[in-house]
Design a protein around this nucleic acid. Structure first.
Lengths: 347, 347
DNA sequence: TTGTAAGCGTTATCAT
DNA sequence: ATGATAACGCTTACAA
């Protein structure tokens, strides 16, 4: 029952009176092989309980058929969906995934990159840690022309492609919506500006203010790690202001900070959305737990993951050249909920 | 700058006038090597830009130094923490992790197991999908004595170890608490009883009722996938009952179902905890977003992950034999919050 | 403590 | 369409 000895292509070859080379070709579905012998080989393989030895194959072919995925954290609606999307296309194309999380720490990210490099992954799918300042640690990949595709939190490098949403436009849309709801003093809770996602959201926010001739009062753009604690601190800051100096709207670059900020303000008697309207970003599950539900931007991690992986694999297979493509942008949607809705939707 | 040719141990050997064997030993920190030559080898390796070829190493040594991790889903507070714990000990011990998610589907789990097997992982860390009925798909591992350690959602097999918390005791404690708060008609929202976690929680729940001579009214144990929707459905069912037939307490086997059930009931005017007290399980982040905050059971995914990985690796290194150990149980804590607190804590 | 040499299981190259 | 043979880069008896 339990086989002790590993079955190799030589066993199959012997079994069928063929050479190992032919068996190898048969197993891989090479074109230059007789259809009939291929069938025989596959049958024999199954019968003998053969399993391909990827180490030998990788060693000889100098390909690992493995993609490395670097994420800030696994514990996220978006990342988990992106991974599922990547896994979907990768497994369909015969690629394996190695997944690592930096926990938002650039040092951990560096060691992950190093580890991926030593694992000889065929390519990398990367979403950067919050505090990554440059892409030097990816040089081993760029140097050897091992393709790198960034997704969501992307980096700028001539030898890579990025898959993103239009964070500028989405933030602009959110801010526009808040303004339409009558907000004139909007506080922006932002993340580290090293990351495109936060930088672009800030720009979109500012652009909308500008077009409506609204000022950005001092300290009305705050940078934090956008954690729940950061949200609470922002709330405390708001509460410390004289009532007429307080914001009448908050646009947070993620849902977590928005939600915990709301909780604290509610506890202090602030009415949402009438005293202060709120909008977040990500459409995280908590956005429909908070009361009132949080207005936010929804976008598909699954699609982003699929797109990133598909482009990487197509590049590896030679059908496209990602070095030609700079940025691929996918759609996102504003979801209006009670936290910002002061009057019925226009129209 | 960019090296085109891979550096091998032969290059190092030539560089130092040594044999490849010595270099290999030096790199691995073998005991039977001169301290001085080892230092020289490591220096030369760094200087020449050597990176070990794991394929060759794995092929030759018949060890992958890779652990497979099967989870129901990545997108979870608990799982993410467990993975971080596993990664911590694995990387310290020189092991790599391959991570897969079944998305609660046994078919996907089967294909993941198969894929791990073909990848020749040295061992498996497994948390089962909701609907997995038996462990037949793990037979290739058991047959070849490739160690399998289950965590959280565990399976029964003589050739494996399980790392869990005492779900029975935790559920008993939760129920006891609800009873102390005056609940006499407690509804239990449970998961698939194929899974130990849900089965044991049900048993602990029943035991507490029994010891207090409380009945379990018909339909007061409901099984679902414990999603938010399931919570909403449970709420609708409660609302469909005559007021005097309704539960005065709900113990949900996870926080998600509890929270969405609460939201619906609150919208219908039910007061929590006075009309109905609530308790969940997991200490998920949403448990502190819902108002009132949710009483729940907290336990450390990080510790469970560490423990599971440590045991697996120790077994692989021969220092322990996991086949001797049946179950390792870690601590959990009841966290009492507003959703269940009708009177000040005793004492 | 170090060297020699065989071989892990596959694929690439060159023949046939 | 198939076969023979030589790598791929490393580990490990065994020898020295």
């Amino acid at each position: 029952m339990a086989e002790e000895k590993e079955v190799t292509i030589y066993d199959i070859a012997k079994h069928l009176n063929l050479s190992a080379a032919t068996v190898s070709r048969g197993l891989k579905g090479s074109t230059l092989i007789n259809k009939n012998t291929r069938k025989k080989i596959n049958e024999a393989a199954k019968e003998l309980g053969y399993r391909s030895n990827t180490f030998a194959s990788n060693l000889r072919s100098r390909q690992s058929h493995t993609l490395g995925v670097l994420t800030p954290r696994l514990n996220s609606h978006f990342v988990s969906a992106a991974l599922a999307g990547m896994e979907d296309v990768a497994s369909r194309e015969g690629y394996r995934l190695i997944i690592a999380q930096s926990l938002e720490d650039v040092e951990k990210e560096k060691s992950n990159v190093q580890s991926m490099f030593n694992s000889r992954v065929d390519g990398l799918l990367v979403s950067l840690a919050a505090n990554t300042e440059n892409l030097d640690h990816f040089e081993p990949f760029f140097n050897r022309k091992i393709p790198v595709v960034f997704f969501d939190r992307v980096g700028q490098h001539p030898d890579s492609t990025s898959v993103v949403i239009d964070n500028f436009a989405a933030a602009y849309q959110v801010t526009q919506h808040l303004i339409e709801q009558g907000c004139t003093r909007i506080l922006h809770l932002g993340g580290n500006l090293l990351r495109n996602v936060y930088n672009d959201r800030l720009k979109g926010f500012k652009q909308a203010l500008k077009e409506h001739n609204l000022p950005l009062p001092a300290k009305f753009h705050q940078i934090s790690n956008l954690s729940g604690d950061a949200g609470v601190q922002a709330a405390d800051w708001i509460l410390s202001l004289p009532v007429d100096k307080r914001p009448d709207g908050v646009f947070s670059a993620n849902d977590t900070a928005a939600v915990f900020c709301m909780l604290r303000l509610k506890a202090a008697g602030i009415k949402i959305p009438n005293d202060i309207a709120f909008a977040g970003f990500n459409n995280d599950p908590i956005s429909v737990v908070i009361e009132p539900n949080l207005t936010t931007i929804d976008y598909s991690g699954y699609n982003i993951g699929q797109t990133a992986a598909k482009n990487l694999i197509n590049h590896l297979k030679g059908s496209i050249d990602i070095y030609m493509t700079d940025i691929i942008s996918l759609r996102s949607d504003l979801i209006i909920r009670g936290s910002s809705l002061r009057k019925p939707p226009v129209g």
